[in-house]
């Protein structure tokens, strides 16, 4: 029997906390502050779009296995879309990052948004790196033997063996994409939670600019 005095459930508490943090009008707003008027804002959504295509093309490659694209024209095309979506992903992300730096987008309690974005960038570098190691061609061979020295020099190579294809492949298709996905998801939720950072106030007051 449920009464009004009953203790809140864990589920109810989590739901209430989520709704408080991200009410629907914050999660999916259909308006934006008037200062959100620059092409630089587009690079965030372009980065997410490129990531979506990276994941989609990677999923298609996974359907047929890692060696497929070496022997199939369709496979080669899908691999090419995977490569170029990664290149665009990084291009858009770097422009997005510099744009956010120029706006000092961490102001107003948005430091966590910056931190999750910066960590996403660092983890994405690792995800792409393991992708290059998983190509099963000369590039992956050479990158592996070159990269091992850096990793070995600080003890990481003893646990993260870039010449172990099986290990690198699993990092590339399971572990790192999961981390990138979680971080990017968290980053977007934080953006929606805090909103877009306003311009520097001093310039508004002084009328400069």
């Amino acid at each position: 029997m449920t009464t009004k005095e009953a203790k809140p459930t864990w589920t109810g508490s989590v739901r209430d906390a989520l709704v408080r943090a991200l009410p629907p009008e914050h999660l999916l707003p259909d308006d934006q502050p008037s200062y959100v008027s620059s092409w630089i804002y587009v690079f965030g959504v372009l980065t997410v779009s490129a990531l979506a295509i990276v994941i989609l093309s990677g999923t298609l490659l996974a359907l047929e296995g890692p060696a497929w694209w070496h022997t199939s024209k369709v496979g080669l095309f899908i691999n090419s879309t995977h490569l170029w979506s990664v290149e665009l992903f990084f291009l858009f992300m770097v422009v997005h990052l510099w744009g956010k730096f120029a706006m000092a987008a961490w102001r107003g309690g948005r430091a966590k948004t910056w931190v999750t974005g910066a960590v996403s960038f660092a983890v994405s570098v690792g995800a792409a790196f393991t992708g290059y190691l998983s190509q099963q061609n000369f590039d992956s061979q050479w990158i592996a033997v070159q990269a091992k020295d850096g990793l070995n020099s600080v003890g990481i190579g003893a646990y993260f063996n870039v010449m172990n294809f099986g290990q690198m492949f699993m990092w590339h298709i399971v572990l790192l994409p999961a981390v990138v996905g979680i971080l990017v998801g968290l980053h977007i939720l934080l953006v929606r939670h805090k909103g877009v950072v306003p311009p520097f106030e001093e310039d508004v007051r002084s009328g400069r600019g």
Binding site: W69, H70, L76, F77, N79, S80, T81, H82, L83, W84, E87, L88, Q135, Q136, N137, F138, D139, S140, Q141
Partner: peptide, 13 residues
């Protein structure tokens, strides 16, 4: 980009 430039696949040694 994929159609125009494809992707490299040099045979491993």
């Amino acid at each position: 980009l994929a159609v125009l430039f494809s992707s490299p696949d040099k045979t491993p040694v």
